[in-house]
Design a protein around this nucleic acid. Structure first.
Length: 431
DNA sequence: TCTGGGGTCCTAGGACCC
DNA sequence: TCTGGGGTCCTAGGACCC
C-alpha cells in the first residue's frame, strides 16, 4: 500500500508596517506614535504605523496634501531609507531560514515558508515561535498566515493582522472556516486582484473573495486570464502557484527617478539619464550580467491638466555589454530622439533588457561577433570604477556626462533617517 | 466566377505584485 | 510647487512564412 504523503502548507510571514518598524528599531521614541514613511522623492505615503492608519492616513496619499496636517497632529514623517530597510530585511530572512529548508523571499517584507506535516495543530505553534523569534532577534514584529495555498496563506495573514487578540498567527484549513473568512474579504484585497479587476468584478456583483471563489473557471479565464484562474483555484485550496526558492534570473533592470523640480532642457535630462545609466551599469555588473538592449523613457507630469508628453524607445546593442560608456552612448542617442522641447519633464529612466550571463551571445551569426566581445580592458576599467565607488562612496568616479555642477534634477529627501546599519560614518557617537 | 489557413514570432498595451 | 520605483506575465493583433 502506498504511503499517504503529508499535507503541504504555506506559511506567509509578513512584517508589520515594515518601513515604520525599521525606523522604530533605531528610535524607540517612535513607539506608540503616528509614523509615516514617504516614497522616493518624498512623493506619497508608502508605510503607516497603526496609529497613523487609525487617524485616516491612506496608502499612497500625496505627501504635500498632508504636510500641514502631519505637523498639526505630530505625525513623525520619514523619507524612505532603502539601505536600512534592505539590511533589516536580510536579517529577518536569515531568522526565517531556521524554520524551514524551503523558503521563498517574496518581497522586502514578506516570505513564504513551506511545510509538510500530518500534525496540523503543531503548525500554529511553529507560527507563534517564528513570530517571537523574529521579534526578539531583529526587533521587527511580524504576522503569520498558514494555509494549503499561497493565496489562502495571504488571506490568513490578513486575518492575523486584522483580528485583535489572535496573537498574530492565523490558520485557514477547515472548509467552513475558509468560506466564512473569504466572505469577509473584499474581492480587491485578494492577492492577484488589482484595482482594475476589482472594479470589473464589483460591477458584476462579485464583491467578496467568497463570491470570486465560486465563479466558473472558464468565465474567470476568459475575463481575468489564466492568472485569475489560478487565483480562483487557490482560493479553493488547489495549489497552482508554487514556491520559488531561487528567483529566476532577471530579464530586465530599471533605473529611473522623478525629479525634485520640473526640467525643461535637454542637457539636464542628459545628466540625469547618465547618472541612472551609471547606476544601472553597477547593478548589472554586480549581478554578473550584460545587457543586449537599452530602452529609454521620459515623461512629463501626468497629473497636470494641460497636454502632456511621454515616450519610450529602445535599441539593441551590437554585442551584449556591461560597459557603462557603451550603455550611455545608446541611451543618450535614444533620449535625443525622444526629446521634444517646450515640455516640463518630471521623469526619465533607463531599462536594460535581454540580460544574460557572461557566456551569452548576441543573436547574430557567430562570425559577426568576431572581435566584438567585450574587451578585457573595458571590464578592468569598470571593475576599478566599481571598487573605488564602493570604497569611497557613490559617484567618487563617474562619467563626465553625469555633470559636475548643480543637480537640479535631484530627488527630494528632506527627512532621511541615518543609515544606522550600513554606513559607519553616520553612526551616533558614543559619549 | 473570384483571393486559405495554420503556425510562429514580435510588440504594444494592460494587468498584476510589493 | 508638490502624486515612487522596480519588476513580471498575459493577450491581442500584425507581420511573415509556407
Amino acid at each position: 500500500m502506498r504511503e499517504v504523503s503529508s499535507p503541504e502548507f504555506y506559511a506567509m510571514v509578513d512584517c508589520n508596517n515594515f518601513y515604520v518598524s525599521c525606523e522604530r528599531v533605531f528610535d524607540p521614541s517612535l513607539e506608540g506614535k503616528p509614523v509615516v514613511v514617504l516614497s522616493n522623492n518624498d512623493g506619497c505615503v508608502i508605510a503607516r504605523s497603526n496609529e497613523a492608519k487609525a487617524m485616516g492616513v491612506a496608502m499612497g496619499e500625496p505627501a504635500f496634501k498632508r504636510e500641514a496636517w502631519f505637523a498639526r497632529n505630530r505625525v513623525r514623517v520619514f523619507s524612505s531609507n532603502y539601505p536600512l530597510y534592505g539590511d533589516l530585511s536580510a536579517r529577518v530572512m536569515r531568522v526565517l531560514d531556521r524554520f524551514s529548508p524551503e523558503v521563498e523571499n517574496y518581497s522586502i517584507d514578506e516570505s513564504f515558508l513551506f511545510f509538510k506535516t500530518k500534525n496540523i495543530s503543531e503548525l500554529l505553534d511553529v507560527g507563534a515561535k517564528i513570530r517571537s523569534t523574529v521579534y526578539r532577534w531583529t526587533g521587527i514584529p511580524v504576522c503569520v498566515g498558514i494555509a494549503r495555498t499561497k493565496t489562502l496563506a495571504k488571506v490568513a495573514n490578513r486575518m492575523a493582522k486584522k483580528t485583535p487578540g489572535c496573537s498574530g498567527v492565523w490558520m485557514l484549513h477547515e472548509p467552513g472556516e475558509i468560506q466564512a473568512c473569504l466572505g469577509r474579504v473584499e474581492v480587491g484585497d485578494v492577492w492577484g486582484i488589482g484595482s482594475r479587476y476589482a472594479g470589473f468584478l464589483i460591477s458584476r456583483g462579485i464583491r467578496t473573495a467568497c463570491d470570486l471563489a465560486r465563479m466558473p473557471g472558464d468565465w474567470v479565464k476568459k475575463n481575468l486570464t489564466v492568472n485569475g484562474l489560478h487565483t480562483v483555484l487557490e482560493l479553493n485550496q488547489i495549489p497552482c502557484i508554487s514556491l520559488e526558492q531561487a528567483p529566476p534570473p532577471a530579464k530586465s533592470l530599471v533605473c529611473s527617478r522623478s525629479f525634485g523640480t520640473r526640467i525643461r532642457d535637454l542637457e539636464s535630462l542628459e545628466q540625469a539619464l547618465s547618472s541612472y545609466v551609471q547606476r544601472a551599469g553597477e547593478k548589472l555588473r554586480r549581478r554578473g550580467l550584460s545587457a543586449g538592449a537599452v530602452q529609454v523613457f521620459l515623461a512629463t507630469n501626468r497629473f497636470q491638466p494641460d497636454p502632456q508628453y511621454s515616450a519610450g524607445s529602445c535599441c539593441s546593442l551590437p554585442v551584449p555589454t556591461s560597459f557603462t560608456p557603451d550603455l550611455q552612448r545608446s541611451a543618450l542617442g535614444l533620449l535625443r530622439r525622444l526629446f521634444r522641447p517646450g515640455f516640463q519633464y518630471q521623469k526619465v529612466g533607463v531599462v536594460l533588457l535581454d540580460l544574460g550571463g557572461p557566456g551569452s551571445r548576441s543573436m547574430t551569426l557567430p562570425f559577426l561577433d568576431a572581435g566584438r566581445e567585450e574587451k578585457e580592458e573595458q571590464k578592468a576599467l569598470m571593475a576599478v570604477m566599481d571598487t573605488v565607488n564602493a570604497r569611497y562612496g557613490r559617484d567618487t568616479v563617474k562619467l563626465a556626462g553625469a555633470g559636475m555642477g548643480e543637480k537640479k534634477w535631484h530627488m527630494r529627501q528632506k527627512r532621511l533617517s541615518k543609515r544606522y546599519t550600513t554606513c559607519w560614518e553616520e553612526l551616533p557617537v558614543a559619549r
